[in-house]
Structure formats: structure tokens, C-alpha cells
Design a protein around this nucleic acid. Structure first.
Lengths: 139, 139
DNA sequence: ATTTATCCTATCGGATTAGTAGGTTATACT
DNA sequence: AGTATAACCTACTAATCCGATAGGATAAAT
């Protein structure tokens, strides 16, 4: 399950990506529109800025804006930044790999094999969906 | 991420499914072979028995055995029993649906749409993999 | 009767989650 | 210069979940 942090982060990014130019959007605007706690959202956007996905501007007329084209930001990037691993087990994670304590040889582990299949199909979708897709107006 | 409960449960089921007849397998045997805490595994197998997946027998020569053919137990069943929802968000879960507090209309939610795609591709794999596949000897 | 092995309830420490509090810093406007 | 604005940053907290443990009750085989 995705944490609320990730869900809110995705919604916020979609909101920011929908801005016409790259006009900065304020936390308060997003928080209100998407029903997210202002303070919680603040910490989420801070994380996204530190990861290099967003830029920010202080003071009046300030806010957050995209540093890249929305179509250049795959969902994998966002989820890995906010949630961590996409895989269902650390031992099949590409970016957050960890060996299982209980597994002497993971190549003989049947659960491992199954989870690689799940990982690959999930990655396939998350890689090909970008923030531009997420930001498309709902029809 | 899958909990250890689920991971251990999957391994244990694969172990049980590998038995020639339907000879009961003892907790201790599985725990030792798969490096799982005896007591923790006990509670996991209890859950699986209560869900109707396993039968059990007490006393000497007792243990756990499958109640159905391994090929009739899809991975979805096991994971839903031990882990709960397969979907990444409650609002796209088929078996554990919950409305999002923050979403006035989930059909207009772009995150929702994305997570439905992920859910469907994951389900596709987990439905077509059964315990029989999981139990195949590692080559 | 004794051993074996599951059954069941209760508890627990540690980690994680979803926030909240409160002040600091940078920018814009007057 | 002074004030308002809005992001920045650190720390804290309440609640929940996870992984595991404790200890006895029950049922079956010998």
C-alpha cells in the first residue's frame, strides 16, 4: 500500500504540472484544493524539492514549480523518492536491494521469482506513465 | 512491501505443497528448513488454516496439509489472506475497497486511474500463478 | 499416562505513519 | 526601512502496525 505521503505527493505534483506556464503554486493552494493538511504537504513538497524534482520561490508570489518537463518525470522517480522501493520484497528491488536474512540462495527462492514478475510488470507501467499523463485533465 | 508474515507464509505453503502425498508437515520442520521463528510461523499457519487453505492434525505425526490442489490455489488468495489488499490504494482495491477521505470524486482522480493499471497488471500475474508454480523445485 | 504437536490469547518493544508546533529565512510590496 | 508573505527546518507526538515471544490449553498417537 502506498502511504498517504506518496498519494498526496502525486496529487500535488499533478496539480503543479497543470499550471499553464511554470507559475509557482503555493502550498496553501494545493492543500485547500486537494484536501491535504497544509503542514503535512509542506514536508512532502520539501522532500520533492530536495530530490531535485521541484524548484521553489519564497515570499509573495512564491511557491513550487517543476524543474523539468512533466513528460520527463516518470512515475517511478516520484514513487521511489516518496515511498522507497517499488518491489514487493527488498531482495527483488532494483534501487533498494537488500538480502533476505532467511534465504541462503535467493536464486533458488520461488517467492523471489514470483516477485520479480510482479516487479517487472509494475515497473513497466510506472516507467511509461509520466507526470504529464498524471496531469491530464479528467474527462 | 510484503510483510514478513506474507513472505514466510508463501514459503511455508510452498514447502507444504512439495510433500509427496498430503502428509502433514510440522511447524518445526518448516521453521527449521526455512529459517523462520517457530512461534511466528505458528501464528501464520493458524491464519491460513482458519482461512480454509490448510488442514491440520494434532499429536504425533501431525502437522499441516493442503485442503485443495496446489494448482487450485492462486497467489491472490494467499496474499489477500495474509497481507490484505493487493492494490496500492484502498480506493482501487477489489476486495478491501475504501473511499479516500480527500477525494470528492475518485473517477476524476488521476492517481486512481494510474493505480488501477498497476493493480490490474499485478492481479494478472498473481491470478495466473498458483501454489503449484510456487512449489516447483528450483532449478 | 505420557509424549507430541497444534491451538489460542495476551503481551511487548521497536519502527513507522501521519501529522503538529513553532520558530527562521528569503522575497516582494509599500 | 518595515511589513507581509510564503517557504524552510527541526523537533516532537499520538496512534498504529510489525515481528515476535510467553505460556498454557487441547487433541491425538503410543
Amino acid at each position: 500500500m502506498l502511504s498517504k505521503k506518496t498519494k498526496y505527493g502525486l496529487k500535488a505534483l499533478a496539480f503543479i504540472a497543470r499550471q499553464p506556464d511554470k507559475t509557482p503554486v503555493q502550498i496553501a493552494t494545493i492543500a485547500e484544493s486537494e484536501n491535504i493538511s497544509h503542514k503535512f504537504l509542506e514536508s512532502i513538497l520539501l522532500t520533492l524539492r530536495k530530490s531535485g524534482m521541484l524548484g521553489s520561490k519564497k515570499g509573495k508570489g512564491g511557491g513550487y514549480y517543476l524543474l523539468k518537463e512533466a513528460s520527463d518525470i516518470p512515475m517511478t522517480d516520484v514513487i521511489r523518492t516518496l515511498e522507497g522501493p517499488i518491489a514487493m520484497l527488498p531482495c527483488v528491488s532494483l534501487n533498494f536491494y537488500e538480502k533476505c536474512d532467511d534465504c541462503p540462495d535467493e536464486h533458488k527462492c520461488s517467492v523471489h521469482k514470483l516477485m520479480i514478475q510482479v516487479r517487472d510488470s509494475t515497473l513497466n507501467i510506472l516507467r511509461h506513465n509520466t507526470l504529464a499523463d498524471l496531469a491530464l485533465p479528467s474527462k
